[in-house]
């Protein structure tokens, strides 16, 4: 299972997940002891620059394929997966760039976070709705353009208005974004790259946003 993820082989991962269920292996054990070590390995090697973005993406695809097979059985058994935190992620409204944001999503998943990636052009309302829905503890916002980074402030203001701001830690990133900008708009942290975003989320997690999710 670990190797299927490292090799970035979704079909093999899916097959192994099905065989695990057929053999009576608890789905949570298959995830935590079978597939997760693979995604951890890929994440670590990516950090060391011995594996690369396509390896990471393909590993995430394999992981996703396995979890899709195992999740229904987990739900049936009522078992829960412990994660470091629940993250809602998105590129703000008006901006359609997502490579950096996707990388953050993959790396956060690889590092034990449950990530809800809302994609691009996400409105403040959609961020708020998802935070409610999944009981998120961390919000990550990306924008690639100086013209759209203002949208990060708009989301934070909206979360204040909705009374959600105290419930979440907010991290921002993107090419034009700086630490100073993050402070100015009242975000809780800034990541210059995907690895820094993960480190930041881990700090939030250590500070008490860990969660148990279905």
């Amino acid at each position: 299972m670990r190797q299927a993820v490292i090799d970035g082989a979704p079909d093999r991962a899916k097959d192994l997940a099905a065989r695990a269920l057929a053999a009576g292996i608890p789905p949570l054990a298959a995830i935590n002891h079978g597939f997760v070590p693979g995604i951890h390995h890929v994440g670590e090697e990516f950090g060391k620059r011995t594996l690369f973005l396509p390896d990471l993406v393909m590993a995430a695809e394999a992981m996703k394929a396995a979890i899709n097979v195992l999740e229904p059985e987990m739900a049936r058994r009522g078992s829960h997966r412990e994660v470091l935190g629940v993250v809602v992620l998105g590129t703000v409204k008006g901006d359609i760039h997502e490579i950096g944001k996707c990388l953050v999503s993959i790396l956060l998943s690889a590092n034990g976070f449950q990530v809800h990636d809302l994609g691009t052009g996400v409105s403040p309302e959609k961020f708020a709705e998802k935070i409610h829905e999944v009981n998120a503890g961390i919000v990550g916002m990306s924008s690639l353009l100086t013209t759209t980074m203002q949208g990060q402030r708009t989301v934070i203001e909206f979360l204040h208005k909705e009374g959600l701001r105290p419930r979440v830690k907010i991290m921002v990133g993107g090419a034009p974004v700086t630490r100073r900008w993050a402070e100015e708009i009242g975000a809780d942290g800034y990541g210059a790259n995907a690895m820094e975003a993960v480190a930041l989320a881990r700090r939030f997690s250590d500070a008490g946003v860990a969660a148990v999710v279905p």
Binding site: F52, V57, I99, C102, N193
Partner: peptide
């Protein structure tokens, strides 16, 4: 990024320099 072809070919298509060459997307911490 989700294509196997991407993973298969990028190493042949691109020379990956050592850290002597700075290709960080932006200045890190």
């Amino acid at each position: 990024l989700k294509l196997e072809a991407t993973r298969r070919h990028f190493r042949e298509e691109q020379y990956l320099p050592s850290d002597v060459i700075d290709r960080e997307a932006s200045q890190s911490g």
